[in-house]
Write a protein that binds this DNA or RNA. Structure first.
Length: 382
DNA sequence: CTAGGGTTAG
């Protein structure tokens, strides 16, 4: 089968997995589309860079283009900035400058995100000078990314200055500076800004909810939630995960029930939140009901949902259901899945099986981290 | 063809 431009673009738009991407690439290379720097080749690169498990692949694709343009550098910088090694994004940015390709506003938006993910204030400051040097200091998008980068690095003063440098901040910029206050636990400052905001949208309210729950001020969050003009799935998820992570299981469960009563469809975030509440409360029966809902809604293939289910069964003492979920219901496993299963086996006295799984995990190419080793050590204690 | 703010498990 040979494919044309149009087909290639629509296939890439729906591409979700690495093997799917490889198939498309194979078909595209038969007609030379993969080397077409105008559309298909670039979109192939874009798909690879935004697919979580296809970064090496995207780098290989990138290296085949003799003279990459800003779009292609940006694509790789973006993919790497969201990876586990965001500093590789900075290396690509440096390569771009060495190749005398001038960075544009997109390049700065992506590379500043990488600095934020590295939590490196030094890199952030250095990039800020580059932004000024290239004349983007009053660019709305770049300015907003600077605000959130400084917030992420815990430097509220710089975030404030970057915000004041934006000539006409819109609601997104305002939301960014409010979120920056919460990130350094300046709840009072966030409240003052929230009241002074010229406009608010739903996200502004959700920023406040998330900030309050992170600061442990759940009653402020609750009264704001009740006073909000509109609520969406993020508002509900924020409240449920907020209550669950602060140990208020009954509130998490009753908010989830309320969500269902309002006719909202639970998403994967609210489900992981309420499952975590069941796990901590030992509510096996509620957990089983949720399990059935997840299967019916077709959400069981989402890794975070599967992991939350695993943890719920393990903490509720049902080792049989834990291994059933792990062995039969999870097609995709992350390091969290392997570690949860190992911990569950070890804590229920199945030391030999836990150790076997520890080896099997490495055979699957997943490298253990600190938490995995701690889980294995439970074998010695129990 | 790419971009900024809010929710996700061990």
């Amino acid at each position: 089968m040979s494919i044309n431009h149009h087909l290639c673009i629509s296939l890439l738009r729906d591409c979700k997995t690495l093997s799917h991407l490889k198939q498309i690439h194979a078909h595209a290379s038969k007609t030379g589309l993969d080397a077409d720097p105008l559309i298909a080749g670039k979109l192939l690169l874009l798909a690879a860079a935004t697919l979580a498990d296809a970064l090496d692949y995207s780098r290989r694709l990138f290296s085949h283009f003799p003279s990459p343009d800003p779009f292609m550098y940006n694509t790789l910088i973006r993919g790497l900035s969201e990876s586990d090694h965001p500093h590789h994004s900075l290396l690509t940015y440096n390569q771009m400058r060495l190749d005398s390709v001038p960075p544009d506003s997109f390049s700065f938006a992506f590379v500043l995100k990488a600095a934020a993910n590295c939590r490196s204030l030094n890199i952030g400051w250095q990039l800020h000078t580059h932004v000024i040097h290239h004349g983007f200091e009053s660019h709305l998008f770049v300015g907003t990314t600077l605000v959130s980068m400084y917030g992420e690095c815990g430097c509220l003063d710089s975030a404030r200055k970057a915000f004041d440098d934006i000539p006409q901040p819109n609601v997104v910029a305002w939301n960014a500076i409010v979120a920056a206050c919460f990130r350094v636990d300046d709840v009072k400052g966030a409240q003052r800004l929230f009241e002074r905001m010229p406009w608010k949208n739903l996200t502004s309210w959700n920023v406040m909810l998330a900030g309050y729950t992170k600061a442990g001020e759940l009653w402020s969050a609750r009264s704001l939630f009740l006073a909000m003009p509109n609520k969406d799935a993020v508002s509900w998820s924020t409240m449920i995960t907020g209550f669950a992570s602060n140990g208020l299981f009954n509130y998490a469960l009753s908010f989830f029930r309320e969500l269902l009563r309002e006719g909202c469809r639970p998403n994967e975030v609210s489900l992981t939140g309420v499952l975590s509440a069941c796990a901590q409360a030992g509510a096996l029966e509620s957990g089983k009901i949720l399990h059935a809902c997840i299967e019916k809604a077709g959400l069981s293939s989402i890794v975070s949902v599967g992991n939350a289910l695993l943890d719920m069964y393990a903490r509720c003492g049902s080792i049989l259901m834990t291994s059933r979920v792990f062995n039969w219901e999870m097609e995709k496993k992350s390091i969290v899945s392997w570690t949860s299963m190992i911990a569950a086996l070890a804590m229920h006295g199945y030391g030999k099986e836990a150790l076997q799984l520890f080896h099997k995990m490495q055979e699957h190419g997943t490298r253990p981290d600190g938490i995995t080793f701690i889980s294995v050590l439970w074998i010695l204690i129990l």
